[in-house]
Amino acid sequence: MDSTAIKNFAAQIRYYTLKELNYMGYGHYGGSLSIVETLAVLYGNQLQVSPETKDDLNRDFFVLSKGHAGPALYATLFLKGYISEDWLYTLNQNGTNLPSHPDKNKTPGVDMTTGSLGQGISAATGIAYGNKIAGRENYTYCIVGDGELNEGQCWEAIQFAAHRQLDHFVLFIDDNKKQLDGYTTEICNPFDFEAKFAAFGFHTLKADGSSVEEINEAIERAKSLTDKPIAIVLDTVKGQGVPFIEDMYSNHHLRLDDAAKAAIEATTEKIGIEIGVR
């Protein structure tokens, strides 16, 4: 896809993520929206995956370690043909196959069950190491949250990946500056992610997480690097692409009142018109 097509794909992902969340009127809006452009680049351009090859061990793998962003992944999987649109509107309802946090046994296209923070990144390093020793050339991508990096287990996984020189492991840090209770700098200051990952033995890149061009370029660069795993620090905004949510102090999980519902639905509508589905 060229960058115009990826931007359009990102708008589609954002549109269906919002529609899916709006349907129930509550959910993890903030952290779902901040990874939309990254998902668009991954699924639009980079990941060698398809519904037909979802069980092929030579495919690329993707682990959404920040599992609460599941709704954005589900919208993406719908657009890629893994699930049908009607599934989206079952999110979090009784008996659904789309729980808040991804479940690989329920949703086709989900490579690893995540939601207990810190575990997805470890599993991703296991997948990447397994692929490496099996002699596969595929890549394992993982998105970890900036708040999630509070978890000690993340740093175990990071040490493991560096020691094992997993150069086909690409880790995105969704640096949207906020965690559930507020700003990351106020709760437990992460300081400088790039310096930390470099010190831990990673190639470290940075990208504007709202720019599909920069994200794509960073991944291309990551794939040219060898001997070390790659961290791409994404400068993002929690609630990205929906001004009403971006402006909220607390936007990790929203339960919409009438005003919020009207504002968010207006943005959803606007995006729908842009992408030609409304």
């Binding site: 690893m112 470890s122 997948i127 990447a128 190491y129 397994g130 692929n131």
Partner: peptide
């Protein structure tokens, strides 16, 4: 968790 990932692979 890494062992779980190895199982996935």
């Amino acid at each position: 968790s890494c062992a779980a990932g190895l199982s996935v692979a």
